[in-house]
Design a protein around this nucleic acid. Sequence first.
DNA 1: GCTTGAACTCAAGTTCACTTCAACTTTAAT
DNA 2: ATTAAAGTTGAAGTGAACTTGAGTTCAAGC
Lengths: 157, 157
Amino acid sequence: MNTHDVLSISEVAERSGFAASALRYYESQGLISAGRTPGGRRCYERGVLRRLAFIRAASNVGLTLEEIRAELDQLPAGRTPTKADWTRMSRHWRARLDEQLAALQRLRDGLDSCIGCGCLSLQRCGISNPADVAATSEGAPGAAYLPAVLRRPHRVR
Amino acid sequence: MNTHDVLSISEVAERSGFAASALRYYESQGLISAGRTPGGRRCYERGVLRRLAFIRAASNVGLTLEEIRAELDQLPAGRTPTKADWTRMSRHWRARLDEQLAALQRLRDGLDSCIGCGCLSLQRCGISNPADVAATSEGAPGAAYLPAVLRRPHRVR
DNA sequence: GCTTGAACTCAAGTTCACTTCAACTTTAAT
DNA sequence: ATTAAAGTTGAAGTGAACTTGAGTTCAAGC
C-alpha cells in the first residue's frame, strides 16, 4: 500500500510513533478517521499525521483525550488543524503549562522552606499542603491536597 | 476512644485528611501500621500522623506508593521519620521536582517557539517532541515522547 | 494451493490509587 | 434492651489510555 497517497496502519504507526492499537483506539474515540480498502483495511490520508502530531502535543500538555477530541471537534467539518487553529489552541495550552509550572514551583519552594526544619506539620508544612487548601477552621480537617493543575497524569504511551 | 494516647480511624482520617478507606489501603500495602482494640478495631499511635504527612508530601512530589514504601522501609525498624530522615529524603525529592520543572519549562519553550509557526512537524516540533527523543535516523520513526519525569501522575485523592 | 505476515474485530486485561459495596460486629448512648 | 453510629472484612468497581489475546480474514509470494 505504499502506492499513491494513502498509508497503511503500520506506516502511520511507524511515522507517528503511536502503536497501531492506539490508532485504532483513537479512531474508536472519534479522534481520527480512516478510509477502508475493499478488503476492509484502514487506509489513512497523509493529513492524519498532522492530526496525530496535534494529539500528541496536546496530550503532552496534559489534556485528556476527551478534551482533545473536543478541541478537534471545534474545527469545521473534521478538518485537519491549520496554522490559525494551531495558534489559537496553543495559546490555551500555554496558559495551562504556565499554571502547571507555577504550581510545581510553589511545591518546590515549599520544600525548600522545609528542608532542615523537619516539621512535616500536617497543617502548616508547605510540601505536604502546598496550596494551603482546606486549611480554614483551625481545629478541624487539615486536609492537604495538590492543586488541581498538578493532579492529572502526564503520560504518553 | 478519645482517651489516652491512641486514635481511632475516623480521628486519624479527620486529622490527616485521608479517607478511612485510604488508611486501610495504606495499611494493607505496608505503609502504615495500626494496633487493635480487644474488639478488633484499629487504634493508631500519634506518630502515624507524621508518617502520613510524609506519605502525602512524597506523593505530592510524584512518588508512587511503592517508592514511598521503599523509602519508609529504609528507616530502621519501621521508625517514624525523624528530622534527619526528612532532610536526607527531601533533598532527593528536591532533585525530582527540579527535573520536573526543567522538563515542563522545555515543553513551554517549545510551545513558545512553535506559536505562530504552525509547523506541528512530527520530527521537529518542540512541543510534540519536546526532548527530541528517538529523533535519530532521519527517515525512520520520528517517535515523540514526553520525558520520563513528566510521565507520572501527580494525583492526590 | 499453501504459507506467511499484516490486518481485522471484540472482549477482556493492565496499572495506580483508591472507593464502594455487602454483610456483619462492636461500641456508645438512650 | 434497643438502636444507631462507627468499625470490620474481602471482593469488586472506578477511570484513563491503552494493550493483549483469541480467532478470523486479506494480500502477496512461491
